[in-house]
Every structure is written in structure tokens, then in C-alpha cells.
């Protein structure tokens, strides 16, 4: 029998998933800390969001992304992150959805999924960047936006091409790292999530009717 949406949600947000979400937020934040320490020209700050989406479904991924930015805005980092909460969430949503189609079983497909996530975040993110921040956010990407505008492009095409080129690479790498992390997780942990047996290990949902036995 097919589960209703509500039943599926309840299964996705099980206790293990609820405990994992703060960890994934931590992974997002630490990911960014290490890119800063290594002075990489990227962010890599959605690895946890993708991770959550793949192992526990699109809605847990979405919630993890939103949670990251909501919590960050309560710290001394300041509440600018709140404006991009949904953008972060979209990556979790897309990762979860594509994982359901088997995208996170091989590395090239996982990277493709990361890029698709980027494409999906543009209609959400670009209006926020243009209307709220006048095309400028901090970081190297804004210099590129300025260059595009100075060479005669509209503000929209400048913001979108910046976002595609620089963010695109960032999201592809994030997805690749998330994939490597998931591959390294023990099977026992994966079985505690609603989606991981199917999205990562490739088992049919029907075969997995038995509840995992608590240790």
C-alpha cells in the first residue's frame, strides 16, 4: 500500500533524522570554516543540507537548509543569512528528490545533481540578490557581477551568470563531497533513516518492510 504524504513525512522526520539535522547544520558551518582556513575561492556550505536530503528525503533536506540559516541569524553573524534560508533549503529539496531517482549512487550523477540544484535555486536566489542587496553580496563573486554590469549586461543577467559560473562549481563540489561522506557512513547508520536504504544502497522500498532492530 502506498503511504500518504503525511505518513511519509512522519517516517522521514523520525528521531534519528531529528538528531541528525543539527549535526548537518554543523557540517554546513564547519564546511565553510575549512574553506576559509584553506582560502578556497568557494563556500562548500551546503554539504550537510545535501546529506540530509539524500538520507532522509527532500523535506528533511529542505528543513535542514532553512534551519541552518535561521540558527545562523540568531548568532553574532547577524540576520542577513535569513534572507537566503529558502535558497539553502532548495538544495536539500532538490538533492532529496533526485536521490529518490537514484542520482546519489554514482559520483558523476551526484555531481550532476549538485548542478541541477544550482539551476533550481536561481529563480529563488536571484530576485533576493537583486531586490534586497542590489546585486551585491560579499565575496569574490560580486566583483564578477560588477564586471558583467560594467560591460553592459543587465543586472539580472549579471547576477544569474555570476551565480551559474561560480556557484555552479561550488555546488557540484559540495554534492561530490556529500556523496563521498555518504559512501563512508556505516550501513547500520544508514538503515536508521527512511530513505537511505533506497537512495544510497539501492534497495527497493518494499523489501525493507522490517523495522531496524534497535541495538
Amino acid at each position: 500500500m502506498k503511504k500518504t504524504f503525511k505518513e511519509q513525512l512522519k517516517e522521514d522526520f523520525n528521531t534519528t533524522a531529528l538528531v541528525m539535522m543539527p549535526l548537518c547544520v554543523g557540517i554546513n558551518i564547519v564546511g565553510q570554516f575549512f574553506t576559509q582556513s584553506l582560502r578556497l575561492p568557494l563556500w562548500l556550505n551546503i554539504i550537510g543540507t545535501i546529506l540530509a536530503g539524500v538520507v532522509a528525503g527532500p523535506w528533511v533536506g529542505f528543513a535542514t537548509g532553512v534551519l541552518t540559516n535561521v540558527v545562523a541569524s540568531f548568532t553574532i553573524e547577524g540576520p542577513t543569512a535569513l534572507a537566503f534560508a529558502v535558497v539553502n533549503g532548495v538544495h536539500g529539496l532538490v538533492a532529496g528528490f533526485l536521490a529518490g531517482k537514484g542520482f546519489y549512487r554514482t559520483l558523476p550523477k551526484a555531481m550532476l545533481a549538485g548542478f541541477i540544484g544550482k539551476l533550481c535555486d536561481i529563480p529563488v536566489g536571484a530576485p533576493i540578490v537583486v531586490y534586497m542587496f542590489g546585486g551585491i553580496t560579499t565575496g569574490a563573486a560580486s566583483a564578477f557581477t560588477a564586471f558583467m554590469m560594467a560591460t553592459g549586461n543587465t543586472i539580472w543577467s549579471s547576477v544569474i551568470s555570476t551565480s551559474l559560473l561560480i556557484d555552479g562549481a561550488d555546488k557540484v563540489l559540495s554534492a561530490a563531497i556529500a556523496f563521498l561522506i555518504i559512501k563512508a557512513l556505516p550501513k547500520r547508520t544508514l538503515y536508521r533513516f527512511s530513505r537511505a536504504p533506497f537512495t544510497v544502497l539501492g534497495e527497493k522500498p518494499e523489501e525493507n518492510v522490517e523495522e531496524p532492530v534497535p541495538a
Binding site: 543539527p22 554543523g26 558551518i29 528543513a63 534551519l67 548568532t75
Partner: peptide, 12 residues
């Protein structure tokens, strides 16, 4: 979720 995340972040 929100409170445990706030507690976890400094630790992580």
C-alpha cells in the same frame, strides 16, 4: 531542533 542546533554549533 533550533535550540539543540544553537548548543551544538559552538561545540562542533
Amino acid at each position: 531542533l533550533i535550540l539543540s542546533t544553537l548548543q551544538l554549533i559552538p561545540y562542533i
